[in-house]
Design a protein around this nucleic acid. Structure first.
Length: 458
DNA sequence: TTTTGAGTTGTTCGA
DNA sequence: GTCGAACAACTCAAA
């Protein structure tokens, strides 16, 4: 048997890893070289929290591979065949990538490997059911979530893969090593940025199952509480496979388990939509929305990015993003709605900003979540569903704790007063900005632009 | 083939 | 303060 390369991408774990299992089996006593390629196409546009998150994950992965992880910087179609040649490997093993960039990249790599007489062996995917597999009776993809979800569950998925037998890691080719962490204040950061990797994912999951799953159905909407699983970034980097989570949920009843597995279903649905319609990473899923009137991103967009719109709940979310590389899901919807409906900026600008900064930023979930808010997506929000940035805050952050945590200029206000600084005498005493738009008027404006677009179609 | 019911996450207004 | 209705039209899925 011959040496093998295990090229890690978004599958930074060792448990429940069919591709790693395949690599170790194929080696059958020979060596396996674990490789990660720092691809400038993905690394370049990333912000500091996202880069550091990846570096920390790779650090823990390498530890669990006895330090054998080889890191190379460059274009995958150059680097991967070169490493395989240096090792004299028979094959390169990967987990399938369903994204538009990943699919093209893997085609290029496979071609380069084939020319050198080697194989790219694809095993599994980051999803319980591989994107493209759930089809209706006519062999077409489902267009709405509810139908997809039913068929997805019926399709089913295998049990988690067993851990591979002890592998012999190859150490021959040189490694560029991991990039240094860029954020000098890392030691002072909140917990969740200090934790990355497979073990952290597992302990957080167990903690969620034991302590928060039962209240998840309602608490998940409260950004002031610790009510969510926080598994998104672990799933994004593949530190855990959703199959493992679904297995653990299967034995549990109750609303929490049901709602959480449905959320995993949304993740799979959006991956499936993107697989069938790769162009929707940039373009409107409903093309007619490209014909609506939008405003160019200007000062309003800058204020939104910086968390200085004058709407406390929105600003808290945007500052949470810059500070933690993560935003609570409820708040993602509200800030997205504000950009698209109140500032009339196209969703792509917001989606790009999110992907740059979110540690859990996933192209399919991110962009289709944005399209849902914009009204152009699958199962899109009805035209009249425009979030009120103030009442959403009052409803889901009733005591103002979330706002005060991320907007220090409002920390002197008590309780829900933090949501309406314009209503209290000293609301602007510490430099908090005035509202940049009037929500009521912009809501009407959005409805008018939508109506104009629809009228133009008739 | 035709028909029918349904479709993540909301807001406002008036009784 | 609470509650129910209205807010478009269309596409999709299933019978």
């Amino acid at each position: 048997m011959a040496d093998q390369v295990m090229w890690f991408r978004r599958d930074l774990r060792t448990a429940d890893h069919p591709a790693l299992l395949a690599a170790v089996s194929a080696a059958d006593g020979s060596r396996v070289l674990p490789l990660f390629v720092l691809d400038d196409a993905l690394w370049g546009p990333s912000g500091t929290p996202r880069r550091d998150r990846l570096v920390r994950s790779l650090t823990t992965l390498s530890e669990s591979l006895d330090g054998a992880l080889v890191v190379r910087r460059g274009r995958p179609e150059d680097v991967v065949p070169a490493v395989a040649a240096e090792l004299g490997a028979a094959a390169v093993h990967v987990t399938g990538d369903a994204g538009p960039y990943g699919r093209k990249r893997d085609e290029r790599v496979a071609t380069a490997l084939t020319e050198a007489g080697r194989d790219l062996v694809v095993t599994g995917s980051p999803y319980a059911v591989g994107p493209g597999r759930v089809l209706n009776g006519s062999g077409s993809p489902y267009q709405v979530f509810t139908a997809f979800h039913r068929a997805w569950r019926e399709h089913g998925w295998p049990d988690p893969a067993p851990k591979p037998a002890a592998a012999r890691w190859a150490r021959a080719p040189e490694s560029d090593g991991l990039p240094a962490l860029e954020d000098r204040d890392l030691a002072d950061l909140p917990d969740h940025r200090a934790e990355a990797g497979e073990d952290a994912a597992h302990s957080r999951w167990v903690d969620f199952l034991e302590n928060r799953l039962s209240g998840y159905a309602t608490a998940r909407d409260r950004p002031d509480l610790d009510g969510t699983s926080r598994m998104s970034e672990h799933l994004k980097w593949g530190e855990v496979h959703p199959r493992t989570l679904l297995r653990d949920l299967a034995g549990r009843g109750g609303d929490g388990a049901r709602v959480y597995s449905e959320e995993l279903g949304w993740r799979e649905f959006y991956a499936d939509v993107l697989w069938h319609r790769p162009e929707t990473a940039r373009e409107y899923l409903r093309p007619e929305y490209a014909g609506m009137a939008y405003d160019e991103p200007g000062e309003g967009f800058e204020a939104w990015c910086a968390g200085r719109t004058g709407f406390p709940f929105v600003d808290a979310g945007m500052r949470q993003l810059l500070e933690l590389g993560w935003i609570h899901n409820r708040v993602r919807m509200v800030v997205a709605s504000f950009l698209v409906k109140d500032l009339h900026v196209e969703w792509q600008h917001g989606a790009r900003h999110f992907l740059q900064h979110l540690c859990d930023g996933d192209l399919a979930s991110n962009n289709h979540g944005w399209q849902w808010v914009a009204g152009s997506g699958t199962d899109a929000a009805p035209y009249f569903r425009i979030f009120n940035p103030v009442s959403q805050g009052q409803k889901f952050d009733p005591d103002g704790d979330y706002v005060r945590r991320f907007v220090p200029e409002l920390a002197h206000l008590d309780g829900a007063a933090a949501h309406e600084p314009w209503d209290v005498e000293d609301g602007y005493a510490h430099g908090y900005p005035q509202r940049i738009v009037e929500h009521k008027a912009e809501r009407v404006e959005s409805l008018a632009r939508l109506k104009a677009m629809q009228d133009a179609r008739r």
